Structure formats: C-alpha cells, structure tokens
Amino acid sequence: MRKTVIITGTSSGFGKLSAKKFQQEGWNVIATMRNPEKETELHLLDHVLLCQLDVADNQSIKKAIAEGIKHFGKIDVLVNNAGYVVAGVTEEIPEEDIRRQFDVNLFGALNTMKAILPHFRANKSGTIINVSSVGGKITTPFMAVYQASKFAIEGLTEAMQYELNPFNIKLKLIEPGAFNTNLGTSMSFTPTKNESDYKNILDKAMAGYAKWGEQQQNPQEVADAIFSACTDGTEQFRYPVGADAIQILAARNQMDDVEFKSMIAQTMDL
C-alpha cells in the first residue's frame, strides 16, 4: 500500500525536488503551494495531488490537509519545507518584516503540525520533517532574524518529541547548508543607507556570502536527505546536509563561543 506525504512549499527548490523524489519512490504526494494554478510540472505526475496552501493562512492549511486525506485516505508524513529569508541590519529591518519572517518560518510550521496531529494521533503513527538550516545551529552576520526563526524551529521540534513520541509520532530536522535554489533570490533584504554606520561591514559580509554561495552543491542532496529521514527507521534527529554544513557544524562543536565568533568574523573579513 502506498504511503502518503504532504509537503509545503513545492513550487520550487527543495520542496519541488522532494515531491518528485517521493513520487519516484512510489509514494502518494500532496504537493502544496500558494499558487498551484501556476505549476506546470507536478500536476502531470501520477499519484500527485496539488493543493493550495499558504502557511501564513490557517484556513488554507486545514483545507489542504482535509483535501489530502479525502483524496488518499491517510497521510503518513508531513514535510514542513516552506520558508524564506529576511536579511540585513537587524536594527534597520522593519518590524512587519520581522513578524512576517516568524509567521512563515515558525508559526507556519507550528500551525501545520497542529493541524495534522489529530490525524496522526488517531492513526497512532506519523512522521514530521521540519526543514531547518545550518543557520538553526550557528550564526552569521546580518542573518539574525532568519537564524532566530530557525533556532526557534529547532527548539520547538526537539521539545515536541517528548509530547509526540508516546503516540508513535517521530520528528526530525533537516539542516541544509548553502545550496543553489531560489531561496536567495526570494530573500527579503533590507538595504542600508550609504551614510549608515553599518555600511562598511555589511558590504564586507555580503562579499563573503557571495563567495560562500559560489559553492555548487546539488539541492537534490536535500531532497534525498528528507526522503531518507522519513524511511531510514532510525532515531536520528538532525540531518546536516552539504559539505559546508557538516564542516561548519563540526567546527562549532569543537570551538568555544569566542573562537567560533572570531572564525566567522575572519571568514567575512570583519
């Protein structure tokens, strides 16, 4: 019998690749996105149901889950992939942008989990995969708002294990490094003014990120890791993905706070 996964944010990037991966592996896929009418590829695949879902809209979350259950009968796995990046000088980022970041990256994932948990508890099984980031474990310049949202999803997911494991519901985190997806192009970046005290260090940091972004890591690695986390049958909780993520997390584990801050500052020429 085919298992069923519901994935948020499947219009591009990790989400679309994950939808294809699960479908190729013989799963039913509920591929959700804000504008499914614009999708030109996934709806052509067998055993794929497209649903409208905006993680900032609770009603659309509940509707998509209900449609998926009605269509396939049961959902076995939730992949919370939808998210985006707010970056810039924290002092200068508008409050509404900061709230929107948490509405999508934290509350969107939380509300999707809350909406599907009654179904998982009734089935006495389920798996939740939350796509975090290497930025949920380490910090870098001018990414404070984004990384705070990812630190939050890490803590939320880890703590919820105690509540949900007794119902045979597993939770896992995917921690990608820098990959060639549209996440960077969809970034909400607050530019600073030329007279800003921050301009010099911001320019240096952005040059550092540009070099980091030149790494041509294949985003299929992340889709494969998401599928593996669902199916490996282990208690592994965190899945760092990408050579850069593995390397920097290993360095963080070996350094104290001062050493790590110094390393990042030197990398960014700050």
Rank of each mutant, 00 (worst) to 15 (best):
K16L: 14
V5L: 07
L156F: 15
K137I: 00
E259A: 09
L17Q: 09
V86C: 03
K172Q: 14
Q215S: 15
N200A: 15
E41I: 13
V48Q: 08
P141H: 07
K193W: 05
S133N: 06
L171G: 12
S228R: 08
G233E: 05
E158K: 15
K211H: 02
F151D: 15
T127G: 09
A109K: 10
G88W: 06
F227R: 04
W27H: 12
D76Y: 00
M206Q: 13
A144M: 12
Y162G: 14
F14S: 06
E221T: 05
T192Q: 10
V5N: 08
G233P: 03
R252D: 03
G13L: 11
E91A: 09
T10Q: 03
A148E: 12
S186V: 13
Q254C: 01
N81L: 05
Y84L: 13
A225G: 06
V89G: 11
L171C: 15
A66I: 03
S11Y: 12
Q161C: 14
I30C: 07
I129C: 04
E39S: 08
G242D: 00
L164P: 15
K74C: 12
A265Y: 05
N35R: 15
T234S: 10
F179R: 13
D57K: 00
N165S: 15
I128H: 00
D197C: 08
A148R: 01
G13F: 11
T90Q: 11
T127H: 13
Y239Q: 02
H43V: 08
D244F: 02
V79I: 13
V145D: 03
T267A: 12
Q161V: 10
K124P: 06
A178R: 08
A205E: 01
F120G: 08
A250G: 04
F237E: 05
V241P: 02
Q220W: 11
Q161P: 14
V241W: 00
E41S: 15
G184T: 08
Q147L: 14
E175S: 11
D57P: 03
V86N: 05
L49Y: 04
T181E: 08
P219A: 01
L106T: 10
E158D: 15
P94A: 08
T267N: 07
F22H: 06
I30Y: 03
I246Q: 01
K150N: 11
V5T: 01
P36C: 02
T234I: 01
T90I: 12
P94R: 11
D269A: 06
A251P: 04
S125E: 08
K204F: 02
S228C: 09
M33G: 03
E91Q: 14
F167R: 00
G108M: 04
N58K: 15
E39P: 10
P118N: 04
K150R: 07
I201L: 11
G135E: 13
M263Q: 05
N168F: 09
